Simulated assay, not measured.
Amino acid sequence: MKAIILAAGKRMRPLTLTTHKTLLKIGDRTLLDRIIDLLIANQVTQITIVTGYRSEEIREHVTTHHPSLNFQFIHNHRYAETNNIYSLAMAIEEILIDDDIVLIQSDLVVESSVFKRLFASPHPNVALVDRYCTGMDGTVVTVRCKNKIQ
């Protein structure tokens, strides 16, 4: 299994004026470290990170804090004028799609139980979504009957 982490944007200002959003800490761990640790715990070791804003900061952090993993980095030079779909398209063009792929937004806080449910799912395609709240500015979907996204 492979993972793509979309980390090009610069949401969460003013918190992100001096650090990338993925390197903000919840407790004693960064958002990005939490995601990577959950992937490792579920045997995902091929991780591609799409960067943009403060990309060198992400690359340095990841290679320093996770030296045993071999990350692939893809830089979205147009991050300020594009969105996560553009970053995903860049990743799809660059990686070999020969296995299942987990796609993760980099600014999410996810409990380990959620990842366990994801990896245990018998369905060929799974999307983990939450209810819409005012202020959400990421990807939004509509869930119709039988829990299908339309």
Rank of each mutant, 00 (worst) to 15 (best):
residue 28 D to G: 04
residue 29 R to I: 15
residue 30 T to S: 07
residue 31 L to K: 03
residue 35 I to F: 02
residue 35 I to D: 02
residue 36 I to Y: 02
residue 37 D to L: 12
residue 38 L to Q: 14
residue 39 L to T: 08
residue 39 L to Q: 03
residue 41 A to R: 13
residue 42 N to P: 02
residue 44 V to I: 08
residue 44 V to D: 00
residue 46 Q to F: 06
residue 46 Q to N: 12
residue 48 T to R: 10
residue 48 T to W: 06
residue 48 T to S: 06
residue 49 I to M: 04
residue 50 V to N: 04
residue 50 V to D: 03
residue 50 V to S: 01
residue 51 T to D: 10
residue 52 G to T: 02
residue 53 Y to M: 01
residue 55 S to G: 09
residue 55 S to C: 05
residue 57 E to N: 06
residue 57 E to W: 01
residue 58 I to S: 02
residue 60 E to V: 07
residue 63 T to P: 09
residue 63 T to C: 13
residue 65 H to Q: 12
residue 66 H to Y: 12
residue 67 P to T: 08
residue 68 S to E: 15
residue 71 F to P: 07
residue 71 F to R: 08
residue 72 Q to W: 04
residue 73 F to T: 02
residue 74 I to R: 02
residue 75 H to D: 14
residue 75 H to V: 06
residue 77 H to D: 11
residue 78 R to H: 11
residue 81 E to N: 07
residue 83 N to Q: 10
residue 83 N to T: 03
residue 83 N to C: 03
residue 84 N to S: 15
residue 88 L to E: 04
residue 89 A to T: 09
residue 89 A to Y: 13
residue 90 M to G: 01
residue 90 M to R: 08
residue 92 I to L: 13
residue 92 I to Q: 05
residue 93 E to A: 12
residue 93 E to L: 10
residue 94 E to G: 07
residue 95 I to P: 01
residue 96 L to R: 15
residue 96 L to S: 15
residue 99 D to H: 11
residue 101 I to T: 07
residue 101 I to H: 09
residue 103 L to E: 05
residue 103 L to M: 07
residue 104 I to Q: 05
residue 105 Q to S: 14
residue 106 S to Q: 14
residue 106 S to M: 01
residue 107 D to N: 14
residue 110 V to P: 01
residue 115 F to T: 05
residue 116 K to Y: 08
residue 117 R to H: 08
residue 118 L to T: 03
residue 118 L to W: 00
residue 120 A to S: 15
residue 121 S to I: 06
residue 122 P to A: 15
residue 123 H to S: 12
residue 123 H to V: 11
residue 124 P to R: 14
residue 124 P to G: 10
residue 125 N to E: 14
residue 126 V to N: 12
